[in-house]
Amino acid sequence: MKRSARTRRLAGRRGTHPPASSRSKLEEQVTELVAQQAAISEVLRAIANSPNDLQPIFDAILDSATRLCRGDLGSLRLFEKDGFRLVAIRGNLDLLKRWKIPELADYSSYVSSVAASRRPSHVPDLAELETYHRGEPHIRGMVDLIGVRTMLVVPMFKDDELIGTINLGRTGVRPYTDNQIALFTDFAAQASIVLESTRRERQYREVQNELAHANRVAILDSSPRRLPTNLSSH
């Protein structure tokens, strides 16, 4: 018995595979997810291996963020009374040889203005910023000396308190995708959690040390005092 044309078309559809483009996109998504899981594992290992040392943790976060978000230069700055101090930097070593990144970004810097806005900033071309044309040293150095044109800066907060920024630059004008911006924001959240956990751990140790000291003092004060044995009797 011959099947109708409609039946043959339906049967053909049931037997077909997804288009090559769809399979390729799914494979890319799976690859990205695997890479992200591996990056999370790297950060967790750094935390486990260095519970009292933030530097290896910051380095692991920046390594993963720079690699997965395809940046050329990643940095992390902590907020202090004088400005934003550089505590970690990763990426293309050739760029770092051309220009020494300033250790401190003061309150007049681009990083500080982004932090004050309290929102992530994605600049497709730094050379179009007013601060660049005004001659702001940090932006001038990034653009003119090492060729970084696209920049992503994400402020880090804990309980609405500014604690620093995490930054990612690209040479040339190569804007980040929405997925890359979201992923980099997740890395900023990781760094915030690590900082807060370390702060709480230090506070806990300080309280424990103070309690131990208070107990020692209390024991000494409560111990009976003996008269000197060499006193002459009357």
Rank of each mutant, 00 (worst) to 15 (best):
P155S: 02
V87I: 08
Y132R: 01
P56C: 07
G164K: 02
R13Q: 06
P228V: 08
P155H: 02
R205D: 15
M142C: 03
Q190P: 04
A11K: 04
F84W: 13
L73T: 00
S192G: 09
R202T: 06
R225G: 08
P224G: 02
H138K: 06
G169W: 00
S64L: 04
P137V: 11
T198C: 05
R119L: 10
E80Q: 09
T171C: 06
L93S: 14
A212G: 12
D160L: 13
N179C: 06
G172D: 13
N230A: 14
K81V: 08
R118T: 11
S222L: 10
E128K: 14
A115S: 05
P224S: 02
N49M: 15
F157A: 09
R85M: 08
Q37H: 06
F79E: 04
Q203L: 14
L126W: 01
T185P: 07
D59F: 01
R9I: 10
A39C: 13
K25H: 12
R174K: 14
E210H: 02
R23N: 05
V87K: 01
R174D: 13
N209W: 07
E210L: 08
F184D: 03
P102W: 11
P175S: 12
N215D: 13
P228E: 13
F79D: 03
N49C: 14
S24L: 15
G164C: 10
R90A: 02
I181D: 12
S75Y: 04
R3M: 09
P120E: 12
A105E: 07
D159T: 03
R205H: 15
A188C: 07
L86S: 05
C69P: 05
I57G: 00
R216W: 09
A116H: 10
S24P: 05
R98G: 10
M142Y: 01
N52M: 09
V217G: 05
A5N: 03
A127Y: 01
D178H: 12
E32H: 13
E103M: 09
G71Q: 07
R13E: 01
P56L: 04
A39T: 05
V123D: 03
T16R: 14
G147Q: 07
M156H: 05
D82S: 03
K25Q: 15
D59T: 13
D160M: 12
A115I: 01
E161R: 15
A189T: 10
I193C: 10
P137I: 05
Y110P: 03
I89A: 04
E196A: 13
V207D: 08
H122E: 14
M1P: 06
V111A: 11
I101M: 10
I181L: 07
L73D: 00
R118Y: 09
L183G: 07
L26F: 08
L76W: 00
M151G: 02
